[in-house]
């Protein structure tokens, strides 16, 4: 029997007046998946997520989250989701522990507040008022608040913006922990390394459209895209490169081979260098990064 997807959207549209913020988005996110929505500001990421959370009505289309329509799911629906939004405060005269206990008390299923405080690394701050926390500590508290009801689906809207690198690593560990428990996570982010590290699948959204979807390794044709072999030749005499390689030369002497068959071309290149007695300095083979692919995708969309 096929397990129904945790999150499904079909031909989802959202209009703000004349602005078509979400334009026929289709999404299928399976149970236990960490799914990442990438896109520039204003592309429709947050609007899409807020529709799935039930914070915003849709203009048209079908949406199902854990089998509920977020717009009408009400309390039973909200008992099973967790939300970490971008701009969301909590009364800052409460202590970390008080806030977690307060929000936990609203849910039928609860995670232990003590355990959560440890998970997000706020043990030394547990008895402090929230207003004394740093920005990064507050975001970690919000992550904990999002998980306090032991949700089956967790929405994370740019959860690590403003984190220092170690806090981000810590947050990633938390999210990985959730996915290992079979929870579904829908994440939006500006950080490509975050998507690369956390996501099982990513979708790139631009101007309200999903323009590419796949695993971080294959999205946007990344898996089959051309690799770049770059190197320098330290030679005290003139030389001719093998003529079956297409080589670009930059002004500072770096040479680049763009190839869809890096195994063969690297073999040709190193064979040629050994035969001629040259060294290939700073030799590097590079797959296009997720960021390269992403920038190319949203650049194409913008008509560049």
């Amino acid at each position: 029997m096929r397990v129904p997807p945790a999150i499904e959207a079909r031909r989802l549209h959202k209009w703000y007046g004349d602005v078509h913020a979400v334009d026929a988005v289709n999404l299928t996110i399976d149970e236990g998946e960490v799914f990442c929505l990438l896109g520039p500001n204003g592309a429709g990421k947050s609007t899409t997520v807020e529709i799935l959370e039930g914070h915003r009505p849709r203009s048209s289309g079908e949406v199902s989250v854990l089998g509920y329509d977020p717009q009408t799911g009400g309390r039973p629906f909200r008992e099973r989701i967790g939300i970490v939004l971008q701009q969301q405060a909590v009364e800052d005269v409460l202590t970390v522990r008080e806030a977690l206990e307060l929000y936990a008390s609203m849910f039928p299923k609860q995670r232990s507040v003590d355990e959560l405080i440890d998970v997000v690394g706020l043990r030394p701050k547990a008895k402090r008022r929230i207003r004394t926390l740093s920005g990064g500590q507050r975001r970690r508290l919000e992550l904990a608040l999002g998980m306090v009801g032991d949700p089956d689906v967790l929405f994370l809207d740019e959860p690590t913006t403003g984190f220092d690198p170690s806090a981000r690593r810590q947050a990633w560990t938390v999210v990985e922990g959730l996915s290992s428990l079979g929870k579904t996570v829908l994440l939006t982010t500006h950080y490509m390394d975050e998507a690369q590290n956390l996501a099982d699948r990513v979708a790139v959204i631009s101007a309200g459209n999903i323009i590419a979807e796949g695993t971080p390794a294959t999205v946007g044709g990344r898996g089959s895209a051309a690799s770049r072999i770059s190197f320098r030749v330290s030679a005290n005499r003139p030389f001719d490169l093998p003529d079956d390689l297409s080589v670009d030369r930059t002004e500072d002497g770096e040479l680049t081979v763009t190839t869809t068959d890096p195994t063969r071309d690297l073999y040709r290149l190193t064979g040629w260098a050994l035969d001629a007695g040259f060294n290939l300095d700073r030799l590097e083979v590079r797959q296009p990064s997720l960021e390269d692919v992403y920038l190319e995708l949203i650049g194409e969309e913008a008509g560049e």
Binding site: Y16, V19, L295, E301, A302
Partner: peptide
């Protein structure tokens, strides 16, 4: 809160 307004122009920077 219902964010009205045009989407930001798409730029090729990291945003």
């Amino acid at each position: 809160g219902e964010r009205v307004g045009k989407p930001a122009p798409v730029t090729a920077d990291k945003g």
